[in-house]
């Protein structure tokens, strides 16, 4: 005995088989317990699937409360995620707004302080060499050791 193909049992449950094929299958199902049992399962599955109705009556909203609830929850999560991102960005901007002027004015304040004057007299080795202490010889002097007299 040739058993019914699975896809034909599905189409039979869907009511989409041609009359000839449907009659042939009905005849087979009356004789074959295995195919009949299979068909009963397929038909029951088909019917259960019908429980999920989607209605788009008003602006596409579902009549199924669970289906409506899911997008709302999703929106809420998206909003929370976006808000969290916004808060981080705002905090960063606020930190920059405080740090940049503080750094700028701190720098200005520190450079305004009077410079530490170097010794007014030339170092001993310059005098020992009998050299003039003008600015032209400043390259001989070790850094920070002496500040040449301007115009000298």
């Amino acid at each position: 005995m040739e058993h019914a193909r699975d896809i034909e049992l599905i189409e039979l449950a869907a009511g989409r088989l041609g009359a000839d094929r449907r009659e042939a299958l009905d005849g087979h199902l009356r004789q074959c317990a295995r195919c009949r049992e299979k068909f009963d399962d397929v038909r029951q599955t088909w019917e259960i699937l019908g429980a999920w109705e989607v209605s788009v009556s008003e602006r596409g909203e579902s009549l199924d409360s669970s289906a409506e609830a899911a997008p709302r929850e999703k929106d809420r999560r998206r909003f929370v995620l976006r808000s969290a991102g916004l808060v981080v960005a705002l905090r960063f901007a606020a930190a920059l707004a405080v740090a940049v002027p503080m750094g700028y004015w701190g720098g200005r304040w520190s450079t305004r302080r009077a410079p530490i004057p170097g010794p007014t007299d030339p170092p001993a080795y310059i005098s020992a060499l009998g050299l003039d202490t003008g600015e032209s010889l400043s390259w001989l002097v070790l850094q920070d050791e002496w500040t040449p007299v301007e115009g000298g």
Binding site: V54, V56, G60, E61, S62, A67, E68, A70, P71, K74, D75
Partner: peptide, 10 residues
């Protein structure tokens, strides 16, 4: 909606 499961995307 059935394919996506989301009304806004649908």
């Amino acid at each position: 909606y059935r394919l996506l499961g989301d009304w806004h995307q649908a």
